[in-house]
Amino acid sequence: MTLRIDAHQHYWQIGARAGYWPPRELDAIYRDFGPEDLAPELAAARISGTVLVQSLPTEDDTRFLLGLADKTEAVCAVVGWVDLKATDAAARIAAFAAHPKARGLRPMLQDLPDDAWIDDPILDNAVAAMVEHDLRFDALVMPRHLDALYEFARRYPDLRIVVDHGAKPRIAAKAVEPWLSAMTRLALLPNVHCKLSGLWTEAGDAGDPTVDDVIRNRVRPYVRVVAELFGARRLMWGSDWPVLRLAPCSGGYGEWLAACEADCARFLGAEAVPDVFGGNATKFYRVGDFLRHA
């Protein structure tokens, strides 16, 4: 039996985010979110476990997430943050990797002033440490970062990389290029995977959209692209909860899951659904042992 995995969700304490996103005016997510908030959604959707992903570029936040993982059975992997260009990056990575649920790192590339930050050989030591400790690299990028990400992924073929949120295509503007061309080239690299997550919140807020409008007229063409580019073995579903609460429609966790399952069956075939919604994340983040003994 294939387990169902949410490959991308967040927890945070709003009091620890002074000076960081989200701003106060985003009422739907400007508060604390913890395991007790997500638990009903996981139960209703029959999700076996989650990948908890950092949302602050601080080691304090990463320690907070690892502490939650210690107490939360449903969290089976943590993607944290380390300064990958620090002179002691290898030691910091080793310390992170010592935690039994540490599975990956994410440098929050979308927020850095240099779009080519990742295309830098100074990362050699950090990447070597990640490979040594069997850690994954989550790439939080936008279309403008994809050329640099391609060079990075090509330089480090032994590093397993996943593109978060399909690289956040400009869905609200109905823009396909340069995202499509860049993603097509990136998908040719076998070490690169992609998360089917975060797309509803890129759909914009024109008018008063219904769930059906968002799915059929806005998001589905982009889901089709990532499904066809990465296929049934390199695509994994994530909720991006609680950021999902910002989606410009009445859809919630269950609706996003159901919409993605239907579209994956449409574009990849029903036999691909168990992999996209659990199997691939289980293998990518090495979480099978936690779930088998839960």
Rank of each mutant, 00 (worst) to 15 (best):
Q9A: 00
V176G: 08
P143K: 01
P121K: 04
A44E: 14
L66D: 04
E73A: 15
E151H: 14
K168A: 03
D208I: 12
I215R: 09
L199R: 02
D147A: 15
L26I: 12
P178C: 09
F137I: 09
I118V: 15
L199P: 01
Y253P: 00
R24K: 11
Y11N: 09
Y30K: 11
G198I: 01
A173C: 02
V162S: 08
A129L: 11
A187K: 06
A175D: 13
A153F: 01
W12T: 09
T2W: 02
A265T: 09
L149Y: 08
L188P: 06
V51W: 14
A102W: 03
G288C: 11
R136G: 00
N280A: 05
S239A: 15
R170H: 07
P248R: 05
D114V: 07
P23I: 01
K195Q: 08
Y156A: 10
V287C: 11
A90H: 03
T201H: 06
P107V: 04
A44I: 05
P169S: 10
L149C: 08
V287A: 14
R92D: 12
D6I: 03
D27Q: 12
H145M: 04
I47H: 07
A116D: 15
L3K: 01
R234L: 06
V223C: 03
I14C: 09
A175L: 13
T2F: 01
W200N: 12
A90G: 06
L188C: 14
W179Y: 02
V78K: 00
A28D: 07
T282L: 15
A28K: 13
D70Q: 09
K101A: 01
D115K: 09
A203W: 02
A39R: 15
Y11E: 10
T2K: 02
I47T: 15
F267G: 11
C260Y: 02
T62V: 00
P107F: 04
K195G: 03
L3W: 05
R185M: 07
A16R: 14
Q54S: 08
D120R: 06
D164A: 13
I29T: 12
L84D: 05
H133Y: 11
G34L: 04
Y285L: 13
L42E: 12
W200Y: 14
K195S: 05
D88T: 06
C249R: 01
R292K: 12
T87D: 13
R286C: 11
R234K: 07
I47P: 06
T210D: 11
A148V: 06
D134R: 07
L56G: 04
F152R: 02
A116S: 13
K71V: 00
R46C: 14
Y30Q: 07
T210Y: 09
I93A: 11
L123M: 12
Q9F: 00
V163F: 11
G288D: 13
T87V: 12
V176I: 10
P190K: 05
E132S: 15
M183Y: 00
C194L: 05
D37F: 05
P107G: 01
P274N: 05
V131P: 03
A262E: 05
K168S: 04
V276M: 04
M1I: 07
A259E: 03
G279D: 00
E59M: 15
H145V: 03
F230T: 03
